[in-house]
Simulated scan of single mutants.
Amino acid sequence: MRGPGGAPSSLFPPPSPLLLYTLPVHIVETAGLTRRFGTVTALDALDLAIPPGITGLVGANGAGKSTLFRILLGLLPPTSGTARVLGYDVATRGPELRQFVGYMPEHDCLPGDVSATEFVAHMARISGLPGDAARERTAETLRHVGLFEERYREIRSYSTGMKQRVKLAQALVHDPRLLFLDEPTNGLDPAGRDDMLDLVRRTGREFGISIVMATHLLGEIERVCDQVVVIDGGRLLRQGPLADFTAATGTLLVEVEGDDDALVAVLRGRGLRVERDGRYLLLPVAGEHVLDAVRDAAAGLDCGIVRLERRRQALEDLFRPELEAADAAR
């Protein structure tokens, strides 16, 4: 694996110099990409240009995310259109491309009667690593995903969360430049989901591996991703940096320790409009005097200010009208 900027990290031995190269401007590019299954159109003239980093591919179940992944891996031919991954044409250079790409499928696809060490080492050998290197990388990869102590147990005895980690390990073991993760938190409880998202974030941030993560949960995108791609019914709805989707609004968010009811009364007494959202107070930002009023009122009531910032728009709030419009059109 590489550290930030593509430099080799200490997790794995440095890869062969022949495998070191600079990522292209776009790790994924598609033009008019279409895939039909009989009368069903899974992808409909999809145009994408995804830069390096961690990208969230979001859409409801059946939106076309898994179909897109299979095409980008060269496993499924498109009906029409073109696709390039890491600069490789997926239709003509699929086998060459796959040595630089890791794939974590959505569904359970693991053999139950072998250990994690045996399975991940086997996948490393399939990817072209010699025996000694495969075993060494397998041990370090399983340590990275948190399965080192359990690596000799049969996979059938693993929990759902552990099986998800095995799937991530086999996608990482050959030191890919790009990971495709299809619903990596599928079937996990909240604690397991948090752990998996943290693992995905660290893999991308610490080792410089670009990631495209498919999910239908917008909260996961907000926690992990730099870029967002939204598809619905096989069509592109919206794409861009996460910051463009969650820009600051004209609402001030305030959280205090102390008598917030008294704070609300004081602020309203000064002519300010105050609303509640759980433990937060929300005020329209109409100038610096609003900030001054909150500060002075909180100080006068001996309330400690925990948060005082412009509220950011949530992804769910932004996409709801677009998704509803797309459903209405269908």
Rank of each mutant, 00 (worst) to 15 (best):
P190Y: 05
D108A: 14
V120R: 05
E136H: 13
H174T: 03
P184R: 09
A191F: 00
Y158G: 13
D175I: 02
A134D: 08
H107F: 12
D195L: 10
L129G: 14
P176R: 10
V101I: 04
L178A: 05
A134R: 11
Y152H: 15
F119M: 06
V90D: 10
V90F: 03
V101C: 02
A124N: 13
P130Y: 11
G87A: 02
G187K: 11
Y88C: 07
A121G: 14
E136G: 13
L181V: 03
E150C: 01
L172G: 11
V120H: 05
F100S: 09
E149H: 08
R143F: 10
A191N: 13
S159D: 07
R153W: 06
D132I: 09
A133W: 00
R193W: 02
L181K: 09
T92Y: 11
L147D: 07
R177E: 12
G102Y: 09
D113P: 03
E150Q: 11
A139I: 10
P111R: 08
R98F: 08
G94E: 01
Y103H: 08
S127P: 03
R98S: 07
A169Y: 04
V120F: 13
A91M: 14
K163L: 02
T160F: 00
A91T: 15
D113Q: 12
R143E: 15
F148W: 14
L147I: 07
T160W: 00
T117M: 13
L110Q: 06
T141Y: 03
P130R: 12
V85H: 03
Y88A: 10
E136D: 13
G187E: 10
A139Y: 00
R165V: 02
G146T: 08
E154T: 13
P176Y: 04
R156D: 12
E140G: 00
G94T: 09
R165M: 01
S115A: 12
G112W: 06
E154Q: 14
M104C: 13
F100G: 00
R165C: 02
V85C: 08
H144S: 10
M162H: 04
E118A: 15
L179K: 01
M104I: 02
Y152S: 15
R151T: 13
V101W: 00
R153G: 02
A91Q: 14
E149Q: 12
G161C: 09
R193G: 04
T92S: 15
A139N: 05
G112S: 02
L97I: 03
N186Q: 11
D195N: 14
P111D: 07
H107L: 12
S157D: 14
